[in-house]
Design a protein around this nucleic acid. Structure first.
Length: 354
DNA sequence: AAAGGTCTCAACCGCGTTCGT
DNA sequence: AACGAACGCGGTTGAGACCTT
């Protein structure tokens, strides 16, 4: 026997709610409370399915709903929680007061996921994308062994110095962070090479970063953040000078960073606060999450694990995002596949990657 | 100005889980 | 224990807003 429909759909209205319907629902719930959604529409005088009423109430009409753009902290929280919980939107929403699972899900799919993809981070696993790591292997085995001062720009078929391609620099940072000193030695000389050609104002930082390799106090996470700092500055430089970067900077994102004393450091989910001692290695921040959030009781690991939802989906279990449903993602992964096919100059034709 | 493309997000759908009898 | 109803969740859709050419 088939499952009975949640309600009799005959004569029931679907689609966007009118203000009159909203008012009826709110009035009824204020008087009688919510629950018993099956009978609520009839009692409230609504030609709607109970399920539709519940959704309208929980996602839109509830008085404690916070509307408007997500704050910097909220975005960070979502990324961190998603790295632990996966697509458990209701569990994530439970830790973001005033936000609904639907809202968070939408925001993830339309903003955060794209941002992570652009950064070369797999939004499913929260790790640097494996396809990009393969490029790292190619670079190391095919090129690095021959020279430490390669002209990457020429090799990639670019008509401008590498520094004119911020996303390539991000890729470099990703590689750099993945394989530690090997890539640091590889990337830095080339950053410096391009810096000289372009009179970049970041020479000091590059030197500092380079010197870091000789100090025992320099850990990989530190280097990683430094690399991101440097690359973000390069990006800012590009945006402010030549307008070569085709994407509009996310002003709210930038403002939020300023507000939080992060200067222009792109916070890729690797900070949990303004204290740099809590920097999380992006390559291991899943496992470090509990310790990184010690100052925020609402985000401690125990609370995350005590989610009321059912057993968490394995973080890499979903193929939804890997196969990609949006143009943006398809492009991104398509580019990655091309990388593996050694068609690098074509993909850097370059709009797909930027 | 307008046509086409892209993005956003409210709402829907189907399924698994929980609850009540 | 078994069954059906209700609930809650995650994935998907589509209308309208916005952007680009």
């Amino acid at each position: 026997m088939g499952r009975a429909p949640c309600c009799d759909k005959n004569g029931l209205k679907k689609g966007p709610w009118t203000t009159e319907e909203d008012q009826k629902l709110v009035d009824y719930i204020q008087k009688h409370g919510y629950g018993s959604w099956r009978t609520l529409p009839k009692n409230a005088g609504l030609q709607r399915c109970g399920k539709s009423c519940r959704l309208r109430w929980t996602n839109y009409l509830r008085p404690d709903i916070k509307r408007g753009r997500f704050s910097f902290e909220e975005e960070e929280t979502i990324i961190q929680l998603h790295s632990v919980l996966g697509n458990k939107w209701s569990a994530i929403a439970a830790r973001l007061p005033g936000r609904t699972d639907n809202e968070i899900k939408n925001y993830w799919n339309t903003h955060i996921r794209k941002r992570l993809l652009r950064m070369g981070i797999d939004p499913v696993t929260h790790s640097p994308r494996l396809d990009l790591l393969d490029l790292s292997a190619i670079l190391n085995s095919s090129l690095y062994n021959n020279s430490s001062q390669l002209n990457i720009s020429g090799w990639l078929g670019l008509d401008q110095p590498l520094a004119n391609y911020p996303e390539l620099l991000r890729l470099a940072a990703s590689l750099f962070s993945c394989q530690g000193d090997q890539n640091r030695d590889f990337v830095l000389p080339n950053l410096q090479e391009n810096q000289n050609q372009n009179q970049f104002p970041f020479q000091n930082q590059i030197h500092e970063l380079q010197n870091c390799t000789a100090t025992t106090a320099c850990t990989t996470p530190f280097s990683n953040i430094e690399a991101h700092l440097l690359l973000d500055n390069v990006e800012q430089f590009q945006a402010n000078t030549a307008n070569l970067y085709p994407c509009q900077p996310d002003l709210e994102w930038e403002n939020a960073q300023t507000l939080h004393g992060l200067a222009s450091v792109p916070n890729y989910g690797f900070y949990s606060g303004s204290d740099q001692s809590s920097i999380i290695d992006p390559l291991s921040y899943n496992s470090n999450f509990h310790s990184s959030s010690s100052t925020d009781q609402s985000l401690n690991f125990a609370s995350v694990l005590s989610t009321p939802s059912s057993s968490p989906t394995p973080l890499n279990s979903s193929s939804t995002y890997v196969t990609g449903s949006t143009e943006d993602e398809r492009e991104s992964y398509c580019s990655s596949n091309n990388v593996l096919k050694f068609e690098i100059p074509d993909i850097f034709g370059l709009n797909e990657f930027m």
